[in-house]
Structures are given as C-alpha cells and as structure tokens.
Amino acid sequence: MDAIHRKYLRMDKLPHIWCPGCGNGIIMGSFIRAIDRLGYDQDSVAAVSGIGCSGRITGYMDFNTLHTTHGRALAFATGLKMAKPGLKVFVFMGDGDATAIGGNHLIHACRRNIDMTAIIFNNHIYGMTGGQYSPTTPRDAYATTAPYGTMDPHFDIAKLCVGAGASYVARGTSYHAKMLTDLIVEGAEHKGFSVIEIITHCPVNFGRRNELETPVDMLLWQKDHALRMAKAAKMTDDELKDRFVIGRIHRADIPEYVEEYDRLIEMVRKGDTDRG
C-alpha cells in the first residue's frame, strides 16, 4: 500500500468484501489516482453509490460518502449537488443499478446535465444477488436466471447516455487501468454530466459461467475486444461485431444545470422576468 492508498482509503475498513480477482478494486485504484491528480480537497469530494457489489465502494474511500438505495444514487446526488454546488460529486453504480432499476434516473440525469461524474461498473451481470442477467448481459451468455442463455437484447450504456444528452461520455475497462484514470480526470474536469462506462470483470458470477475461468481470462478478453476510436473508424461493421470502443466517445459544450439555475435565481430576484 502506497501513500495514495493511505491518503484516500479508509484503511480501517479493509479488507473489502469483494471476491478475490474482482475488477472493483482496480476501478477504485484508478479513481483515487484520478482524484489525486485532480488535486481535489477530500472534504470537497462527495462519493454517492447505489446498491450492489459496486455500491460498496463508498464505504472504503475517505470522502463525504453516501451509500443510497438500489438504482437511486443519481437522484440523491442530484439533490446533493443542487444544494451544495461546491461539492465535486461522483456517482458509482453497477450495470443493473444504473440501467435497470435506475435507468429512468440515468437518462434524466443525462438530459439535465448537472455537473457530476457517473461511474458505471459494467460487469454484465448482477454480482451481489448471485449472477442474474442484467440489461447489459450479452445475448446467449449464461446467468443464474438464464440457465439456457440470455435472450434479452442488451443496452449499449455509452450510446444510451449519448442519446439521452450526456455532455461527456467515455468508456474504459478494468484492464486499461491507466487510461481509466485519464478518463475519470477528463470526465471530472468536464463541466456537465459525465458518464464513464467501465467494462469490468466479475469472475465469480459472470466469468465462471461463461468460459472465462479466471480473472486473467476476463482481463485478456477485455484486451482483445477493446478498440480505440481511431482504429474502429477504419473497420467494417462485421469486423466490429463483438468488439467495443474505449476512450472518449462524446463531448459537447452545453449549458450546465446548476449554473443555469443560479442564473434563474438572479433573474427572479432582480424582478427581471415578466412571468410569475
């Protein structure tokens, strides 16, 4: 454990509850390195999470931490940021958390464009409840609730968020841990709602059932299937099948909600409105 860990982790809360080989620890490592690089004062950082294995991350990090209800982390974070705009708000969610039970909150958070960073742990499965399929489980993959293979079509989280209006969308992996830190830094510095989708691995509830026997197999799968944008641009649809793009996917400069609201307050207080 180096100085960064000692500074940003609640060492007395370790060891964590995650299974050996789980991707969540890698993501936490990338995140605290990003905070270190951003130079944010820990007192000004709020980490909000939902329910799931991923949601437990807030308990281990030394910030203002809020562990909410399943799927609702973004709703809590919205109130928090509106009430105290000075807080740097990061929201941690699993794929089920963010896109099944919390799907409505996710698209509306994208649309509103409040300055905060959503970090979605996409391990393609419900980890905490024991390997049921999620909205991102690939077709034909096995899950405890899909013993014959999943037949539901799946979401592309990054595309969904771009479509819903997020002003920054990136995708990283738990294999490309350094790049992940870069993406989190970039997302945090972007003014507006940023989404970082992270393709990560759940060896216990996804890998074992889907011919990726070890965490290493899962990481190598990520390495083999991830593509940079520039490279993907030169490939045919056929070649792109089963592959995914990593890096920054979308960035737009659109009005940020909290600042807009502050402008509204100013306008109303000056009586500078012919309404209401």
Binding site: T68, F76, M82, A83
Partner: peptide, 10 residues
Amino acid sequence: GAVIGASCAG
C-alpha cells in the same frame, strides 16, 4: 432521493 440528498448537504 433528491430531497434526502439536499438534506445531506444541510
């Protein structure tokens, strides 16, 4: 959720 979040901020 938003109400609780706002309250957490005081």
